[in-house]
């Protein structure tokens, strides 16, 4: 970071459009994101697109705390949008970066976040090609809010839709569930639980590309962010008009995450993930897709957690360790810790 920003904070001047704004843009954003599209400093980025259908998505990020074990808001802002594109079967190409900064944010913090965005973008192989910065008065935002939009391209023949789950399909997840939600909870100072949990925050486009190259029978994919795996399964069951049965003894949950959930009375199925996807694949290709995932670093702990059945429509059920059944419903509001 340029020395002139040491110990400096964001002021209203940085959002005024004047010299302070343009200096900040050049010194922090253009330098870090470092690509020809951005360097022109025009009001828009212009680029050629390869052949195929376009996929377009947008997402906003408002996490507190900004830095947590396994990631930070900048990394999230890239993984979230990259993964939303990837699960459609698209190859993510370009991202935008819209920032709302609270007056008083240390510029060093902003710089750290922007560098983290760039590092994650490099991992994903995408470029951040345009952006916007606004500053609001102290108290009007919580330090920094980020919006990223992303565009990608879907190769011909790839059709992955949440309405395509079919009876007999297998449900695969690429790794342990609930780690992001648990990591955020324990990063918040008010919760005096110490557990060694890192967010699963990671880009999934390379993993998706690999599994799509070995199977034409991947019917549906979703990244299981807010609301967790349970919510995504409910969306797929609803959209595909099928029932999904998952088995309690096959759910991959790390022991520390389970511990936090046991203490607070929460269910890891509903905790947020930031690098975990649910993949619905025809039974015939399930083993092949699973093995391919397991060869990647993002999917080395992948496993099959359930099966699609035809009836009753729109229902997700968990078959418990004891052979009982319970409905995994959509969450009403947030999960709230129980009193005793």
């Amino acid at each position: 970071m340029n020395k002139k920003y040491q110990n400096k904070k964001i002021t209203m001047a940085h959002g005024s459009g004047g010299k302070a704004s343009s200096d900040l843009i050049k010194d922090i954003f253009v330098d870090t994101f470092n690509n020809d599209y951005l360097a022109t400093m025009e009001d828009q980025a212009r680029f050629e697109m390869p052949k195929g259908r376009l996929a377009l998505t947008t997402d906003s990020f408002v996490v507190s705390p900004l830095f947590f074990k396994g990631g930070d808001i900048g990394k999230l802002a890239v993984t979230g949008t990259v993964n939303d594109l990837a699960v459609s079967g698209a190859k993510p190409l370009y991202l935008t970066c819209g920032l709302i900064l609270e007056e008083g944010l240390p510029i060093a913090t902003l710089d750290k976040i922007i560098k983290s965005m760039q590092k994650t973008a490099e991992e994903a192989g995408v470029k951040i090609v345009c952006g916007d910065t606004k500053v609001v008065e102290k108290g009007s935002a919580d330090q920094i809010f980020i919006n990223t939009a992303g565009v990608g391209v879907i190769d011909e023949g790839i059709e992955v839709h949440s309405y395509q789950a079919q009876t007999g399909d297998k449900i695969i997840v690429n790794g342990f569930i609930g780690d992001h939600g648990a990591a955020i909870m324990q990063s918040r100072a008010e919760l005096a639980i110490s557990a060694d949990i890192a967010s699963d925050c990671q880009v999934l486009n390379h993993l998706v590309e690999k599994i799509l190259s070995v199977s034409n029978n991947i019917h549906a994919m979703r990244d299981a962010t807010r609301g967790g795996v349970a919510t995504v399964l409910n969306e797929i069951a609803n959209d595909s008009k099928v029932s999904i049965i998952i088995k309690e003894d096959s759910l991959p949950v790390r022991t520390p995450t389970r511990g936090v959930c046991e203490i607070l009375g929460l269910d890891p199925l509903y905790l947020a993930n930031e690098g975990t996807l649910v993949c619905v694949v025809a039974a015939i290709d399930a083993d092949k897709v699973l093995a391919t995932m397991q060869q990647t670093k993002e999917g080395k702990d992948a496993c099959i957690i359930g099966t699609v059945t035809n009836h009753p429509e729109g229902i997700v059920a968990l078959s418990t360790l004891f052979g009982g059944t319970k409905i995994i419903d959509k969450l009403i509001g947030d999960q709230l810790p129980r009193i005793c």
């Binding site: 049965i245 359930g306 099966t307 059945t309 009836h311 009753p312 229902i315 078959s319 409905i327």
Partner: peptide, 17 residues
């Protein structure tokens, strides 16, 4: 409401999974 609803409708053959 959360856990009991529709439970009778589901005929799970866990051994098939």
């Amino acid at each position: 409401y959360s856990y009991g609803k529709n439970i009778d409708l589901i005929n799970i053959k866990t051994q098939e999974q």
